[in-house]
Structure formats: structure tokens, C-alpha cells
């Protein structure tokens, strides 16, 4: 039986708190994603753009948030993942990842998802639709 089987609207996945954001996190993401916009890595460039300091790539936070669902990929996959970027993430920010069941039908479970900073402000917010599949890929 799938660990997701039996969830009800209002149920929450276990929240995950990330370690404080470091410059190295963003340098690694720049390299892995190919997004070398310097406002994410170089203070002077961020300041030239009117920012108080470097900010995380929105896609770094969105990528992190998806990991709440990784333990369930043997039972299905993310069919839809929609995010609005709401606030900036700075170095040393402590981000917490949340997902709550919004609704479900036979094949899908819809979650409201968000990442918050240490001030309880949403930095990204959106929805995940998880679709159950029969395919087994474990050997």
C-alpha cells in the first residue's frame, strides 16, 4: 500500500527545514542549472540591480520544495507543479518547506505547497498534483 494512500484533505507532509542559505548553495545551483545571472552569486552585481545582496534563484527554492514528494516517486510522479514567486530569499535565510493535501480523486492528489522564510513569509507558493502510477522501477 502506498504511503500516500489514505491521505485526507488537510493532512500535511512532514515539513522540512533547510540549513541557512549559503553562497555556495547558489554557486552550485548556478553551475547545475546553467543560470549564471550574477545577482545570485556576486554582491556587487546584486547591488547594481538595487538589491541589498545576492538573492537565491527562484528555481533553486522551487527545486528544493519538490523534494517533499521524492520519497513517493515509486508510487507516482508530479503531474503538475505550479509556483508563484512571492518574495526574495537572501543568504542566511532559513527556509521551511510545506505541503498540505487540498483534495484527491482516484488517480491524483492535489497539494497546496509553499516555502516560508524565518519570518513566516511565503517566498514561493503554489500547487502540486501528484498522479499515482503502476510502473515499478525498483529492481
Amino acid at each position: 500500500m502506498s504511503p500516500l494512500y489514505g491521505v485526507q484533505p488537510g493532512d500535511k507532509l512532514k515539513a522540512v527545514t533547510l540549513p541557512p542559505v549559503t553562497r555556495l548553495d547558489l554557486i552550485k545551483y548556478a553551475g547545475a542549472s546553467g543560470d549564471y545571472n550574477p545577482i545570485h552569486t556576486i554582491d556587487e552585481e546584486a547591488e547594481k540591480a538595487g538589491l541589498p545582496g545576492v538573492i537565491a534563484h527562484g528555481m533553486w527554492t522551487m527545486g528544493n520544495l519538490a523534494k517533499l514528494f521524492t520519497p513517493f516517486y515509486e508510487e507516482g510522479f508530479i503531474q503538475n507543479y505550479s509556483i508563484r514567486f512571492r518574495g526574495m530569499v537572501f543568504l542566511e535565510d532559513v527556509i521551511t518547506l510545506h505541503a498540505e493535501v487540498e483534495g484527491k480523486d482516484q488517480e491524483t492528489i492535489t497539494f497546496n505547497v509553499r516555502a516560508k522564510n524565518q519570518n513566516e513569509e511565503d517566498v514561493i507558493k503554489g500547487q502540486v498534483v501528484f498522479r499515482k502510477t503502476e510502473t515499478r522501477i525498483a529492481t
Partner: peptide, 20 residues
């Protein structure tokens, strides 16, 4: 490299012995 950069180095992304 990408999975590591988003802090999600799960075997389902990179372990080709345990997963077909």
C-alpha cells in the same frame, strides 16, 4: 549534479543498481 544542488540526492535520481 542537479539533484545535489537542490539538496535532494535521492537514490531514485542516481542509483542505477537499485533502480532499473
Amino acid at each position: 549534479k542537479f539533484a545535489e544542488a537542490i539538496g535532494d540526492p535521492h537514490p531514485i535520481f542516481m542509483d542505477d543498481v537499485s533502480y532499473s
